[in-house]
Design a protein around this nucleic acid. Structure first.
Lengths: 264, 264
DNA sequence: CCAGAATGTTCCAATATGTGGAACCGAGTT
DNA sequence: AACTCGGTTCCACATATTGGAACATTCTGG
């Protein structure tokens, strides 16, 4: 097994690209990665990999702990923190998420589409007890999350095709959509109704309603959702929130264009 | 003005190091950075910088938005999220932070020393209203934060000297320590008492008590703190929490060695 | 509406950097 | 003592990066 190549066929960004591939392999691995583990994952020659890893360590992107395991470094946190704090889309959406949370009482998510994944940009949690931002920055597949399907529903043509072509369907629960036809049908339904549901398709016992946020000018496809545990959130409640979620998504979309308009 | 060189004198990590310097310059900048802004900051030739930026964009570490401004990319979030989720130190400390929060009712921080900065690894917030992880990943100076001074107090000899030598003292409030002598005296006091106070030294109106967590085996210097607004948290309350904070820090330190011991 | 400036992008020979096979080292095992 | 395994170092060779300069594309003010 080798590291998945970046989408850009053309070969990539030289040295930096290779370094990032190694970094990602280590950072997204399940457990600690020793030198040999990375070696077999990356398929690079030993000497080369060794230098790449040293460089990453020197840069603080990775750290080499006592028992020779490479772990993600803290510099990533620092950079990401700045990235998050200044993210324009997140800032615009924040007050709307708060409002949506107040009205529903359940957890609210904001996620943006990136390749075949949804990256969660923000969340407003219902109960404080659960570890807070466990989710922010998390990447989940598009085809089995409310936010993911909502975001996809805003796309069409080649942009959509490219994404669909790359999806590898995996069954997470009995309700997971597992083929292209199913997903296309679902997207069509979402386009008509303006909302996407996730009825325990990704995690058993978790349901959500989501709606698409789309901004062609910024090439942004995203989604907002309200999520809750199935025992507390029945189908009818989910349906009841649909208009609210849809309106929130629309309001964010509108606010985005309003901000874009003036400045140019 | 040029980008600050990394601490490692020896020159650095070649291509990757340069790319990271550019990335950091953009990511940590105040506002949006256009090409020319980065150019003047980085002091690199135009052609070179242009390619570096393109590569960073292709890798998803930066994004180039509609009005030609470079902003930090979402890939950073994804990587950092994984980094945070799997951080061993954070996981060990988490339950202790929760407990400390329950007992004090105020915001609890966990920060680790990295160079001359404290990077906040986790926090348990007092009121949910305030934006949650606004702080996680944030970097603050060592010499004017409770956690920073606590962490420093665990160091000595050349390790400490190197850090002290690099500090550029800046006055944030009337109470900020602004010279080496003052800091050394403070550290001595902290070593004796086992706790560090921040009496509005960084932000006016914000006070905190902190205690050091230190693990020589993992080369880890860190700190735990309880923070609150001055109007609610008087000196005596701060003093009252001192033993609690000290014990929490000790418990985390102990737990760390306990985990390290067995596994080797 | 045009000249001039400022900004961003592309090119390419020279060269600094990264590459990777192979040798080396040290710790554990048989 | 010989062997394997995980990790590190070396160095001739290949290649990616460099950076100066030319080019393209907005802005800007007269």
């Amino acid at each position: 097994m080798t590291i998945r190549q970046r989408e850009d066929e053309d070969g990539g960004t030289g040295t930096l690209g290779k370094a990032m591939a190694v970094l990602e392999a280590v950072a997204l691995a399940e457990g600690p990665m020793r030198f040999t583990d990375v070696l077999s994952l990356s398929g690079q020659p030993r000497g080369t990999l060794h230098r790449q890893l040293s460089h990453l360590v020197q840069e603080g992107l990775l750290e080499l702990n006592a028992d020779h395991a490479y772990v993600p470094g803290l510099r990533l946190l620092k950079l990401a923190s700045a990235s998050w704090a200044r993210n324009e889309f997140r800032m615009v959406a924040a007050p709307f998420l708060e409002a949506l949370h107040r009205e529903t009482g359940e957890t609210v998510h904001l996620g943006v589409l990136r390749g075949r994944e949804i990256i969660y940009l923000d969340k407003v949690e219902s109960r404080q007890a659960v570890r807070m931002n466990s989710q922010i920055g998390n990447a989940s597949p598009v085809y089995c999350t409310g936010v993911g399907k909502a975001a996809l529903s805003a796309l069409s043509g080649p942009a959509l095709d490219t994404i669909l072509a790359g999806i590898e369907y995996r069954r997470f629960t009995p309700a997971t959509i597992t083929d292209r036809a199913g997903l296309l049908a679902e997207l069509e339904a979402i386009r008509r109704s303006g909302v996407a549901f996730d009825r325990e398709e990704h995690e058993p016992g978790i349901r959500c309603v989501a709606a698409p946020v789309f901004d062609a000018e910024r090439a942004l496809a995203a989604g907002v959702s309200v999520t809750g545990p199935a025992y507390r959130v029945g189908e009818e409640r989910l349906d009841g929130w649909a208009p609210l979620v849809r309106d929130t998504a629309r309001a964010i979309t509108a606010e985005l264009s309003a901000r874009l308009g003036p400045q140019r």
